[in-house]
Design a protein around this nucleic acid. Structure first.
Lengths: 245, 245
DNA sequence: CGAGCGTGTCGGGCTGGCTGCTGATCCTGG
DNA sequence: CCAGGATCAGCAGCCAGCCCGACACGCTCG
């Protein structure tokens, strides 16, 4: 009951995928340029294509560029010496990342590992150019601000997901987040446009591969989701949301 | 071993409390104004003092103001119909919140509950004024951007905390975060300047009151922390970090 | 076509959530 | 300043959810 309302409101608030007003960061209006266009126009900017699985930056690399994801998904993760790896964020299109470099002028190094989770197209520019551009054209600052606000809201949603006590709720909540960020509507539900291994899901929600296999199996047996070649289709997000315990 | 290095590096990176360059958002230099001064100067801004436990905004309230926390701590939480409440963020001084209102012009409502966790002093201004100010003076945009970047890093640290699988690690990690954000050094360690009930901790890390009581008791018995009138003192953060499992 | 990764399954063991209760501490109003 | 209520802390016992380790099978991509 509780969970149902919870999940329902989350989903129903996002008919076009996103928190109210959040998804549309990239198109502030017909007249003004988009964030993408702005960044592409900066000194030292470049457009890059990265293959699935390749690293964008390593922990320890100097943080001097800002990135805007144009197409695909990027995984930000923390790697431990044990080899264990946890996912801190799965970035969707139009997400801004590498913002560490925007902080006070002093040098700092990346502490996350950014890898292309799918084939990725992104635009990148030196932080110094970005700062200069803001000083010259205030609307750039506003665009960036909107981009970052959107990131904060996404991250907070993820925190909500992670504070669920039982894994089943966590998984369901995570799937709904993925629908919001990576879902493409089809005639039999929403398909999450990512090739997700159970291991990858486990690393994102703090569980283990075996548990994810079991829980996903349960959801499938109950006719709530379908999995085909690592792509998950959620038949009915509202029904799925009822699975909150 | 793994955990030791992990915790150590986190703490040793933050001698003055904060990620590198993160804490100093409020003072970009002697010449330029601080974010605080800027916001206070905006049309429609006000300085407010809120007593511990009072609400700053409710879910459902229209999101039209931006807040900068000047003194004290604010808890952002999600309330469910069951009465259960989870903490999405514990904001420290100089944190910017209410950023939802900065997103695209369209109306939107708050979906979190913001309450004063301690007695709070904050500065607030209408989002429209903020937007106008950015257009007039680009350095305002830069300051806000730094504020938000800092928030993102904090939030991501919290996600890291929450993906630890065992509660003991989660608690330890959370205590270290609190030391970073609310710690005041004393002659026998770092004291977290918040009156935290076990329930409050549980709501922040997705556990239960009873478990927190037990784990905190263990830490105390092992001489790692001390608790006096709900204030927690961490004797040696580095030793505490060794408690990661 | 073979190697490697990903998926599905089983059992054993333990962590941690849940319930119920008691005593301590804090807060408030008379 | 005290009394009484409310919140908080601590303890124990029960039970299940989930981690761990191990193994077999299937898919996929070189």
């Amino acid at each position: 009951m509780v969970g149902a309302t919870r999940g329902f409101s989350r989903y129903s608030n996002t008919p076009s995928g996103g928190l109210p007003g959040v998804a549309s960061v990239g198109n502030p209006g017909p007249a003004s340029p988009t964030l993408l266009e702005v960044i592409r126009g900066l000194a030292g900017s470049s457009v890059e294509t990265i293959e699935r699985g390749k690293t964008i930056f390593f922990p320890g690399d100097p943080a001097e560029r800002v990135y805007l994801l144009r197409r695909g998904a990027v995984r930000l993760s923390r790697v431990y010496e044990s080899g264990e790896e946890i996912t801190v964020a799965l970035l969707r299109e139009n997400s801004l990342f590498g913002v560490l470099s925007l902080l006070t002028g002093q040098r700092s190094d990346r502490f996350y590992h950014a890898i292309a989770f799918t084939r990725v197209e992104m635009v990148t520019a030196p932080a110094t150019s970005v700062r200069r551009a803001i000083e010259q054209d205030a609307s750039v600052g506003l665009l960036l601000l909107q981009g970052l606000s959107s990131r904060i809201l996404q991250t907070e949603t993820m925190i909500e997901t992670l504070t669920h006590r039982d894994m089943s709720s966590r998984l369901v909540s995570f799937l709904l987040v993925l629908c919001r960020d990576f879902g493409v509507p089809g005639n039999e539900g929403i398909t999450i446009d990512l090739r997700l291994s159970h291991q990858a899901i486990a690393e994102a929600i703090g569980s283990t591969r075996v548990t994810i296999t079991r829980l996903l199996g349960d959801l499938r047996n109950d006719g709530l989701v379908q999995i085909d070649r690592k792509k998950i289709t959620v038949f009915d997000p509202i029904a799925l949301a009822k699975r909150f315990s």
